[in-house]
């Protein structure tokens, strides 16, 4: 499931151009008032904003700015930092093989998350949408969201068990099927660990994505579909020529959300492998955590945080300029 934060990034993009319209309705007499007078009249508003901004200043702005600032320091926990300019970043991109490798892993994971989420969810959403009986449709919609309410740590733990070398069902199954040579310690073998993390949660049912796509499908006016059917369009034609173009917006939304989430996410790696074995499943977030809290290189770890921030920023800008459409 995506973080609300990631959803937030997307919404923020959507909202950028839309100025609150009340601002334009300030009457002529209002404008004549001095600024001071208007500020005094607005004091209720400032009071209402106060709790929000107190929290934001202390727990959001301050840490965010400090994170940017501290990335320029050689800084260990509890010690006075030493300013070293952009050395941390230079080292990240020239000397730190683990970090470069973690970027590669991150890209692979994010790419797979997008493909599997969009592919499987689209297939399921179309199937549910084509169900004729309303009750069946409703039931499946409900069933598909149900897994969302299981705490997200639970599937991670269960899949860690499924991949277990000795008792894990996967190896037991392979042995039973006569494929003993295929069995391996899935999460402890550096050659396959990343793919084991990637392919967890088979068959990749994502209730949220399904709901979003289904909402898009159901918003398609029935007349369009009907007229196409009268013209003799079959199931496949109906999908490619009508439904797919009309839910392109939802598919883009899901892709953007999933990429943003895939860049930052390291809970799965944290819970299943901690980045191991031999850093084969390392992702930037996990590497940052390790540097900061296991070896105490806080400044260096902050610079990884800044890199992640910049990636998010670039993705947001690209999305805002080239991808976001207004059609849904």
């Amino acid at each position: 499931m995506w973080l609300p934060l990631a959803t937030g990034v997307y919404m923020a993009v959507e909202q950028m151009p839309a100025l609150p319209e009340a601002a334009q309705s300030i009457g002529a007499q209002e404008r004549k008032k001095t600024l001071w007078k208007r500020i005094r009249e607005g004091r209720v508003a400032y009071l209402m904003l106060m709790p929000t901004f107190i929290f934001l200043l202390i727990f959001m702005y301050y840490p965010a700015l400090l994170g940017l600032y501290r990335s320029l320091f050689k800084w260990s926990a509890g010690l006075q930092g030493k300013f070293i300019g952009i050395d941390n970043f230079v080292r990240l991109f020239t000397k730190d093989k683990v970090f470069l490798n973690s970027l590669d892993n991150m890209l692979q994971l994010a790419a797979w998350y997008v493909v599997s989420t969009v592919g499987v969810s689209l297939f399921i959403a179309i199937l549910i949408h084509r169900l004729r009986r309303g009750r069946t449709q409703y039931t499946f919609r409900l069933l598909m969201i149900l897994p969302v309410v299981i705490p997200s740590i639970v599937p991670l733990m269960l899949w860690k068990f499924i991949y277990d070398f000795k008792v894990g069902p996967l190896n037991v199954f392979l042995t039973w099927a006569g494929l003993e040579t295929w069995t391996r310690p899935w999460l402890a073998d550096p050659n396959v660990a990343l793919y084991a993390v990637m392919l967890r949660n088979f068959p990749w049912v994502d209730g949220v994505a399904i709901l979003i796509l289904l909402a898009g499908l159901q918003a398609i006016p029935y007349e369009i579909v009907e007229s196409a059917m009268i013209d003799g369009a079959g199931e496949m034609r109906r999908f490619w020529s009508i439904e797919l173009p009309l839910i392109a917006g939802q598919i883009k939304l899901i892709s953007v959300l999933t990429i943003m989430w895939g860049v930052q996410e390291f809970t799965a790696v944290f819970a299943m492998t901690q980045g191991g074995p031999i850093n084969s499943t390392m992702v930037p977030g996990m590497w940052m955590y390790f540097n900061a809290f296991s070896v105490g290189k806080m400044g260096y770890a902050s610079s990884i945080g800044v890199v992640l921030f910049l990636i998010t920023l670039v993705l947001t800008v690209v999305n805002m300029k080239y991808i976001t459409t207004e059609e849904y």
């Binding site: 950028m16 202390i58 727990f59 994170g67 977030g285 998010t312």
Partner: peptide, 22 residues
Amino acid sequence: FYMVLTLMMVPSALTLIPSFVL
């Protein structure tokens, strides 16, 4: 309003370490 809006683009990765220190 835009001050709040920009916060949406700040990933938790950036604030994790300073928040912990705070």
